[in-house]
């Protein structure tokens, strides 16, 4: 996000609590699908990272849902997810670029909606 002025980067409390660093480039957004990496070392994580992992143990969730379930703002959870991707705990899948949608994805959406 452009803020018009240069903002000094401070490590937010929740990142420090989770002993994570804020990555420089974050592709994570609201509908990024988040899952636990197969080789994730889930031990030794502090809250809120351990809460996030407990949430994802059941099934992958979008960042937006993670935020809602954790009761934390989206912008906080976005950074948390990015931090946990950075240390190999989580995997993400972004929505495909929409400028030229993949015809196979469109067909999947159509057949899925028609079958409901």
């Amino acid at each position: 996000m452009t803020s018009g002025r240069q903002r000094r980067r401070v490590v937010p409390d929740y990142m420090a609590a989770a002993r994570l660093s804020v990555p420089e480039h974050i592709s994570v957004e609201r509908t990024t699908l988040v899952s636990i990496a197969a080789d994730a070392d889930a031990g030794g994580l502090d809250p809120p990272a351990s809460h996030l992992l407990a949430l994802l143990r059941d099934e992958p969730l979008s960042v937006y849902e993670c935020a809602a379930h954790l009761g934390l703002p989206y912008c906080v959870v976005r950074l948390l997810v990015a931090g946990l991707v950075g240390n190999g705990t989580l995997l993400t899948r972004d929505p495909p670029p929409s400028d030229l949608p993949d015809i196979e994805i469109l067909e999947l959406v159509l057949s899925g909606l028609r079958a409901l």
Binding site: T31, T32, E59, S62, L91, I105
Partner: peptide, 9 residues
């Protein structure tokens, strides 16, 4: 949902 599902917004 599996980790293979493609998110569509």
């Amino acid at each position: 949902i599996s980790a293979d599902h493609i998110p569509v917004k």
